[in-house]
Computed example of a mutant assay.
Amino acid sequence: MNREKTYGIGELARDFDVTTRTIRFYEEAGLLSPAREGQQRVYTDADRVKLKLILRGKRLGFSLSESRDLIEMYDPESGNSRQLNALLSKIQERREQLNEQMREIELMQVELEEAEKRCLDAFDR
């Protein structure tokens, strides 16, 4: 009998360097739905992959709703083309946002340099 590997909440928290509270939050948000053995949560490999995708989405700046939508599109029978296209679109949107933020930061740096120069010039007078 080949039984699927399962994980406890503490094990997942350690593996992904998050708190158990974070994992429970994702569960409450409907992103994870572990089985129960009494009061204990039992996570499968699929739950582990979902958690990995949620955390990756978070690092990329995706909202929980966006991550949920992408995870729900998983359909290996279709080659996941719908999911992949949606992910590509989200990546392009995020990249555009980051590029705009970089332009704004560069402008702020120029303005700070000019303000600093004016302050230093005022000391020299």
Score class of each variant (00 low, 15 high):
Glu37Pro: 05
Arg103Val: 07
Tyr7Met: 00
Ile9Val: 03
Leu55Ser: 00
Leu84Cys: 00
Arg68Trp: 06
Ile71Asp: 08
Arg14Tyr: 07
Val42Gln: 06
Arg56Met: 11
Leu64Cys: 06
Gly8Lys: 12
Leu107Ile: 02
Arg14Ala: 12
Glu27Met: 05
Asp121Val: 06
Tyr43Ser: 00
Gly79Cys: 08
Leu12Arg: 04
Arg103Gln: 14
Leu98Ser: 08
Val42Trp: 03
Lys90Ala: 15
Gly79Tyr: 12
Arg59Gly: 06
Asp121Met: 10
Asn2Tyr: 10
Asp47Gly: 01
Val18Tyr: 04
Ala86Gly: 00
Val49Ala: 13
Gln92Ala: 15
Asn80Pro: 02
Lys52Val: 05
Asp121Arg: 07
Glu72Ala: 12
Glu4Leu: 02
Ala46Phe: 05
Glu11Trp: 01
Arg36Pro: 00
Val42His: 03
Arg3Gly: 09
Asp75Tyr: 05
Arg82Ile: 02
Phe62Gln: 03
Met102Pro: 04
Phe123His: 11
Lys58Val: 01
Pro34Lys: 05
Gln39Ala: 14
Arg82Leu: 11
Glu113Ala: 15
Ser67Met: 15
Phe25Arg: 13
Glu100Tyr: 02
Arg24Ile: 00
Arg94Tyr: 02
Asp17Asn: 14
Gln39Trp: 10
Lys5Val: 15
Glu111Lys: 15
Gly8Gln: 08
Leu107Met: 09
Ser67Gly: 11
Asp47Ile: 00
Ala13Gln: 04
Glu77Thr: 13
Asn85Asp: 09
Gln92Ser: 14
Arg118Lys: 14
Ser81Asp: 13
Glu116Arg: 14
Ile71Gly: 10
Arg14Val: 13
Lys90Asp: 10
Leu70Thr: 01
Ala115Val: 14
Ile9Leu: 03
Ile54Asp: 06
Glu113Ile: 13
Phe16Ala: 09
Leu112Asn: 06
Glu104Gln: 08
Ile54Val: 03
Leu112Val: 08
Thr44Ala: 06
Asp45Gly: 14
Arg59Met: 03
Gln39Met: 14
Leu51Gln: 06
Arg14Ser: 13
